[in-house]
Design a binder for these strands. Structure first.
Lengths: 192, 192, 192, 192
DNA sequence: GAGTAACCGAGACGGTACGTCCTGTCTTGGA
DNA sequence: TCCAAGACAGGACGTACCGTCTCGGTTACTC
């Protein structure tokens, strides 16, 4: 993923490509981020592009992920439920917003394009899961969380519903809905 | 008495197309279900195909959905938790199995192809959500379920995590994982 | 070579392509007759072009050959030596002129591109050889020609030298040189 | 005493390049003699290669010409007609043989690539023409040849037909054909 | 039972993007 | 100081699929 080249020009080319791609994504979504278009706008030739990435989806994942890196901050109110609820709200808002569409397209594309999945995973999932792992650990330390549940499962139960809605569009991603989901997930669907 | 349709040929053509598409999906996934390929195999011309469907994804959704219709039966053990757990297991198994890949491709494609979304929703989501609505109503009737949670939210919390994993492949879809998810979702992530 | 399509559009497309190619050849030689350029100028898509011809060289051969068809008239003075000398002059002049360069490029390209050779042969060699066959037969009928020499050999001895010079540029293609060649070829290199 | 060149490495590099090229030509014809391939096989960098030759065709011409240098010996039977006939046979055989294809490709390439023509001329034409000049002078000395015909014209009349056939493939290059050509050229196409 | 519409197969077509290949220039770091 | 190693822009290649279109033959309703 991070080949260190002897030639610094590699870095410049990579950067140009990622910037151009970022712009194209913003303008016309993933569909606009054609390899030809990226090449034309970045001034980097297609051959070079294909030397650095296996497919346009991979480029888009990296470009978009780089930009999104610090988009969703980790809340820390001292209260577990508040923190997790807030986080679900944030992510929901992100999906519903300007970038959500592109994110969905990216996720969709990485299903079809196996070469791109590692990029998508690296630039989106890993960071997100690490963040949630952090929150979850805090919750466990406070004794608020059910210790039988792994951070991975918790993440999926909290954010899977959002992804589901993002992909199918079968339900809105409003704050109310986000709260309903986090509440249901945190306290369980069944009566105690 | 007579043919119900004014154009019985249409029916035969639709059927040929759906069968051919089903076979192509089974053989090579969504990528193989090219409109040209469908046309060639079904003997139905492309013009006719485009008269019946807006895009190849729509055809594939209908063909695949028709086949999958009765694939996942609704459990009825009399025990709410057992029913829901079983259902999550079933769906998880379906996703993990032979058809899961195609389902994922279809969902992915319907993100990109707006014309296909209604088909996808009709042939997959609606049926599934209706089924869960049924289970959830039973649970409410029994007084097992939290009445403040809507069937829609319940569905998303239970199955969203599976979809999430299916799409990204970041975690396996084994029975143990399915049980971990349903258990966490049903009883909540936090301590009571 | 001449597939008769049920669709008259085929003819229009072929014609557009050949006209565009002719113009490109005139403007920039064979190098300018890129498939992309031909497509752009003719308004015929690349896919269609490749359905009709195996390679750009083939297109160029057909386009150029069509144009050249009646360029070199068959002389008929009643005198064998004069006729043949005149013909060599004509061909020499053609090679030396505006079109010679393109002809050479075409011949060169058909060496590299086996798919194009039949086109080159059809549109250039066959016509030329038939013409010479005609002259040669007349000469035989008059009793002027050596009947032990085939028309093919005669053609090669008369025009091979011109081709040779055209390809290598090692000697000019002036009228004097043409006459020297035809004289030498007609009367022999050795003393009688 | 010392190395004659200031840069003995240059010599080694040139030699490596030419050897590698020769091998590539033998293996896959001119098409295989890519600059990249030559660089890779010879261990000489592309930059260095371009310092010594203007284009790949030039390299190939030199490499091939060097190898071919002594391939066609000059006959000397004391009989002019026999000598020339023999020479035509030899050249025809060469063209028809293993190396003929590459020679044709080289000639073809030097049409397109102006930078390579001098190389082609130097390594092929000049040597060949000098040889024929030698034969022709002997013939003149013996009084067998027509003194009004220049060595250049004689060469073209004798060997042009072979080149013609080599390039277009319109007729075979067998010994019989070679003899037919040399006989026709030497004694003339017309009756005396 | 013939006439007449609508329909359909076949597939050509323009368009767009793909991913590959080669050229000739340029840069870097090591010998 | 010179070179190998190879990155790079540029540009053409040939392919694939899409969605539209035109054609001519067939079908099945209408009169």
């Amino acid at each position: 993923m991070f080949e260190q080249s002897a030639h610094p020009r590699s870095l410049k080319a990579k950067d140009s490509v990622l910037c151009a791609t970022k712009d194209l994504l913003a303008e016309g979504g993933l569909a606009a981020a054609t390899v030809d278009a990226i090449s034309a706008r970045s001034g980097v030739s297609k051959a070079t592009i294909y030397k650095h990435w296996p497919s346009r989806t991979a480029i888009a994942a990296e470009a978009f992920g780089r930009e999104m890196a610090a988009e969703i901050p980790l809340p820390d109110t001292g209260n577990t439920e508040a923190d997790l609820t807030e986080q679900v709200r944030h992510v929901s808002k992100f999906y519903a917003g300007r970038h959500g569409k592109v994110f969905a397209q990216l996720l969709a594309a990485s299903v079809t394009d196996p070469a791109a999945s590692p990029y998508f995973r690296e630039y989106f999932l890993d960071a997100r899961r690490a963040a949630i792992g952090e929150l979850w650990q805090r919750a466990l330390d406070r004794g608020d969380a059910n210790p039988e549940i792994s951070a991975g499962t918790a993440t999926d139960v909290l954010f899977g519903p959002l992804i589901f809605r993002l992909m199918t569009g079968h339900a809105p991603l409003t704050e109310e809905e986000a709260d309903a989901i986090s509440s249901a997930a945190l306290h369980g669907l069944l009566k105690h």
